[in-house]
């Protein structure tokens, strides 16, 4: 069935047509705007969660050569000869906390083993432990940013 291409009845006057079009444009824009606004409305602007970026303590809390486990943050913070770095303790297999054994890590749940850089040596874990960016706050506190993953080359010289 073909479309008759007959203009909408009742608008022989070009003025009427243009007014109609104007109104229709406004309406259309408003509809699109309404949908966009609804979507934007639903995007939260503040989060009621623990911050993804937090201080773990002054640098002096992590003496040279140390590796400190922070259980409530699920992080290891190391202070090596060439700087600070932070490795997640969350096993990439199913989420248990890995233990720091020797120079590497071992997961007690299913036996995954990681080397000192968090790379998988052995076991069911599919990928390496995550590294997170470390920085120094203006008040000389070490700050971890869980939203900024980094490579195992990362060191913070402080």
């Amino acid at each position: 069935m073909t479309n008759d291409r007959v203009p909408p009845s009742g608008l022989p006057d070009p003025v009427r047509r243009s007014l109609f079009a104007l109104g229709g444009l406004g309406l259309g824009a408003a509809t699109v705007g309404f949908l966009a606004a609804t979507f934007r409305f639903l995007v939260p602007n503040v989060l009621y969660e623990p911050s993804r970026r937090f201080a773990v303590g002054p640098a002096s809390d992590f003496p040279p050569g140390s590796g400190t486990f922070l259980p409530d943050r699920r992080l290891y913070v190391f202070n090596s000869a060439d700087g600070f770095y932070a490795i997640s303790s969350v096993c990439t297999h199913l989420g248990c906390n890995v233990k720091h054994i020797g120079r590497g890590f071992e997961c007690p749940c299913h036996g995954s083993q990681f080397d000192e850089n968090g790379q998988v040596v052995h076991g069911p874990a599919p990928k390496a432990l995550a590294w997170y960016a470390l920085s120094l706050s203006p008040r000389a506190q070490l700050v971890v940013d869980l939203d900024q993953p980094v490579s195992p080359e990362f060191r913070l010289r402080a």
Binding site: A37, R40, F41, N45
Partner: peptide, 13 residues
């Protein structure tokens, strides 16, 4: 209060 301060278009809605 959140609707008033931190939700986009919260006040209008």
């Amino acid at each position: 209060k959140d609707l008033q301060f931190v939700v986009t278009f919260g006040i209008v809605l």
